[in-house]
Design a protein around this nucleic acid. Sequence first.
DNA 1: GCGACAGAGTTTCCTCAAGGAACTCCGGAA
DNA 2: TTCCGGAGTTCCTTGAGGAAACTCTGTCGC
Lengths: 165, 165
Amino acid sequence: MQRTNFSSQLAACSIARTLDVIGEPWSPLILRDVWVGLRRFDQIQADLGISRKVLTERLNYLVEEGIMERLPYDQRPRYEYHLTRKGTELVDLLMVMTAWGDRWLAGEAGPPVLYRHHACGEISHVDLRCAHCGEPMHAGDVDPLPGPGSAGPEPAGAEPADQLA
Amino acid sequence: MQRTNFSSQLAACSIARTLDVIGEPWSPLILRDVWVGLRRFDQIQADLGISRKVLTERLNYLVEEGIMERLPYDQRPRYEYHLTRKGTELVDLLMVMTAWGDRWLAGEAGPPVLYRHHACGEISHVDLRCAHCGEPMHAGDVDPLPGPGSAGPEPAGAEPADQLA
DNA sequence: GCGACAGAGTTTCCTCAAGGAACTCCGGAA
DNA sequence: TTCCGGAGTTCCTTGAGGAAACTCTGTCGC
């Protein structure tokens, strides 16, 4: 296929920008693998069954974008991939995917993996809260407004959010 | 390209399952558009600049997966897409993408769109909390454990999370 | 010293589906 | 009776992804 081009959206949409970084097929799964400790090329390749070519491309891109670092672990040309701060924060996304997938897509067997929260020691999952007041913050709890990086002051028309997010 | 095949991962990974639903290019942006009120085919098509063919495919798939409903709004064959409960909860993912994108990828101009939280009236963004204890829950705050839907009891080896999430 | 080895990619070739553009279909409206 | 606007289809090209073989580099065993 042709490389999907979100360019028109990149200007005005943090979602599109984020997708540009981890939106490609396999990228989130690679991020997950590195997060849980599969740090080497062949480990990730074997775990995912991804082609070596694609894995190379994705890893290079993720390094380029500052999501991961490529660090030598031997005199020989051997490298490990580690998450940067930027990459670690991106794992939030994976946790939300996990929560949603567990809730809506888990088979009769239940979730394949559980997470124990260090702070309370319980098996739990993530919940979205307002960073300001701490109350729940979901799809219906917000109004979108044009921000400083928007294309310009939108006419306050009937369509509140034509150029979005 | 050949349709990316996560099949090996689908069995054991809620992330892969979730990606199977909204992981394709454009799907998250379509979800966003419908969320903010662009509900008709041509509106979405014009907003995203996506090809009509791909938009048709994505919409059909999202309807099939129960993320959206296709509802007539006229005697003529005219339809609108609306989010289901399942789809609305998936918007959480978009909010996390927005938060991450705003933090790490916003240009010098700042975020293109802001969200005002109904509960507190403030411009804010989402934060991840433990659904159980309410404390912050991020990448470093959890241990993954095999759950009921895992392939089987993993040998409690040195590699704590080989078959993951 | 020399070949086998292991990790980490590169390269090549092939296939097939993603994207784009143009076409169709349907039921009012003029 | 034609025009129009919304909502899809159809067709073609291209380039992404997969598979497998090849490369490069430093170690290890003998």
